[in-house]
């Protein structure tokens, strides 16, 4: 998953360096990819809370293949 700041421009930037979007209201552009499937979305300012809680929940529930460190530490403490 990639995310970056997005100002809402839909055209490339002109060569003279003038900003395309005046007074940009910054959003967050999120792209996700798995093998050849790609999805993307723009998170508006008012949706940030909803998106980040949903995303945190996704991380908590889906990312469960990693090692747990603290448990090992506790066991080591108990044997001492």
């Amino acid at each position: 998953m990639t995310m970056k700041r997005y100002d809402g421009r839909t055209k490339p930037e002109p060569r003279d360096g003038k900003p395309v979007v005046k007074n940009p209201e910054y959003k967050c552009l999120v792209r996700a990819q798995s093998r050849s499937k790609k999805i993307s979305t723009v998170v508006e300012q008012r949706d940030v809370e909803i998106f980040s809680t949903a995303y945190s929940n996704l991380l908590k529930t889906s990312v469960n293949g990693l090692k747990r460190l603290k448990k090992q530490k506790k066991k080591a403490m108990a044997t001492q």
Binding site: Q45, K60, V63
Partner: peptide, 21 residues
Amino acid sequence: VQQDVRKIDKFISNLIRHMAS
């Protein structure tokens, strides 16, 4: 390590909040 995911998650939500502000 699983515990790092929580720290990363915290950092991401901060970053998202800043990107969309």
